[in-house]
């Protein structure tokens, strides 16, 4: 185990998540991609804490921030989907994009 391995794992998760977020049409699925990306971010922050500056708590604080961001992203995402769905019966990104027109 070393920093590089953890970071590689983190970037793999991030890229898988990115792929999902880019390709999925459904908003809920898109959020799952975002979650996966944030999972990679959490892991990267944690390994940076461990292998670069374990004495400083900032690394851990960064993880806390990322976890909170995940929760916020989820909650906001669901609220937006509900609101969109209520007004237009839309749960796909393409359809939401058409709203502009």
């Amino acid at each position: 185990m070393n920093l590089e391995l953890f970071l590689l794992l983190a970037s793999a998760l991030f890229c898988v998540g990115l792929f999902g977020a880019l390709t999925q049409q459904s908003i809920v699925m898109l959020m799952m991609g975002l979650e996966l990306m944030l999972g990679g971010v959490i892991l990267a922050a944690a390994s940076a804490w461990r292998y670069i500056a374990p004495a400083a708590a900032e690394g851990q604080v960064l993880v806390v921030v990322a976890i909170t961001a995940m929760a916020l992203e989820m909650a906001t995402g669901f609220a937006v989907v509900t609101a969109l769905f209520r007004s237009r019966e839309i749960d796909m990104t393409d359809m939401a994009a058409e709203l502009k027109e």
């Binding site: 892991l43 390994s47 851990q60």
Partner: peptide, 13 residues
């Protein structure tokens, strides 16, 4: 990911 964090010594997180 949570398990990996345990491995990193971040039990609580």
């Amino acid at each position: 990911v949570g398990g990996e964090m345990l491995l990193l010594g971040l039990d609580y997180l």
